[in-house]
Design a protein around this nucleic acid. Structure first.
Lengths: 227, 227
DNA sequence: ACAAATTTAGACAGGCTTGTCCAATTCGTC
DNA sequence: GACGAATTGGACAAGCCTGTCTAAATTTGT
């Protein structure tokens, strides 16, 4: 044990550490180059591992790809549900709380490494692995929307919002909050913190304009005065 | 000239007809297989042309790819601006007119062959051809949003809507109207006419809830606060 | 109908990639 | 320190793909 070595060097890594290292590198290369363009040698090099080790761990290219997708799916879902758990059920300032939630959602689930990679793989290879991505679809967006819809329904029940169909509202919330980031996402870029905040702010304001509780003008005025 | 042949057979096609045939087939194959996975032999076969003809017309694979993207970009933009020209400037029934417009937009620009193909190519290869897609970005979304924003501003000016920032409203309109189609788009699928209509209906209703003209001072204040 | 231009099929070299095999080395653990 | 497992680097065959070249067939324009 000689801990005095340079922090940039990870001299020996465990078996398991190499497995994840390979999967991480593979995710990066598959995304950058596409499935067909991805080169096992490059993945091995990027993982700091020999090509043979890649084959030892994952068998062949296709199995490696499946492992990558499963890994990303799992981590993304975990992040999404962790973030949804922070939904403002008892908002003190509805607008500010929803904006903060939207920013968290973006930062932790959609703009982060896993989110961007998974999205790109789904877009690029979704047609080639229908069953694999059908699995993602059920576990990911399906449950995300349900969970989010339940939270919005709760806000509506508590009198903070006036919502017709919570499922529709949940999907529209996500769409609005990302409205200004679409192009950046499409080109595979990463929006700045400021862009995320602006899109979330504009999106939440419009969302609340549409779904804020409608009772009397006075109540509305009071609600707006909050902000 | 013997027009009596079977309609399924196009015995001799002109030079120019072969060029477009090749570009069309290439678009299809590039989308399905990705740039690296696309095979010139397959493109030639799908175009009903010999491999050498592909090279005669387009030089090499990369030039062919660029030709495909330019072709798709041009046709998509033409479709988009033709559709925007049908924006309901003098609506008789604002909700119905906007829903119909949204459906047209989807059907003619976003869900059709060109739209789906271009989107997929941008997503998959956007990182590899920054200048090519930067061109698309300016000519396409940039001008689309401006044009749409101008139409919404006009509706607001005519007293049909209460809008803070027309650019924001335009982007949010598109986001809302497509909110329920995102997953289908991601997986490269084609939504049914009914799905398009439902997403547009829900989106436009929410849009109008947020931006319908407000009379109360509080609402006006909120609208101004947007800017 | 004739001449020029285009298209075709096929062969071909060169390069790259996948996946396997193996001998030498290094690592984890006792 | 020693043993077994994992890792490495390199060689290797097989296959695939791009891009070129050719000679023959076909189409187009006149």
């Amino acid at each position: 044990m000689k801990p005095g070595v340079s922090p940039d060097i990870f001299p020996p890594r465990s078996h398991e550490a190499k497995r994840v290292s390979v999967v991480d590198a593979a995710a990066s290369v598959f995304c950058r180059e596409g499935y067909a363009g991805a080169n096992i040698d490059l993945i091995a090099a990027e993982a700091g591992v020999s090509r043979q080790t890649v084959y030892n761990h994952h068998g062949d290219k296709e199995k490696l790809f499946v492992a990558v997708v499963r890994d990303l799916t799992e981590r993304c879902n975990a992040g999404i549900f962790a973030t949804i758990a922070s939904f403002p059920d008892q908002p003190t300032n509805l607008e500010a709380d929803l904006i903060a939630f939207a920013v968290r959602m973006n930062r932790n689930c959609i703009c982060n490494r896993d989110g961007r990679f998974l999205r790109k793989l789904i877009q690029a290879e979704g047609g080639r692995y229908p069953e694999l991505f059908a699995e993602w679809r059920e576990q990911g967006p399906g449950r995300t929307w349900s969970a989010l819809a339940a939270r919005f329904a709760r806000l509506a029940f508590a009198g903070h919002l006036s919502i017709g169909d919570p499922d529709v509202a949940a999907r529209q919330f996500l769409a609005l909050v990302n409205a200004e980031l679409q192009i950046t996402f499409m080109l595979g870029g990463v929006p700045t913190e400021e862009e995320v905040l602006r899109s979330a702010t504009n999106g939440v304001r419009t969302f609340l304009s549409a779904f804020a509780r409608r009772k009397s003008p006075a109540a509305k005025q009071a609600a707006l005065a909050h902000a």
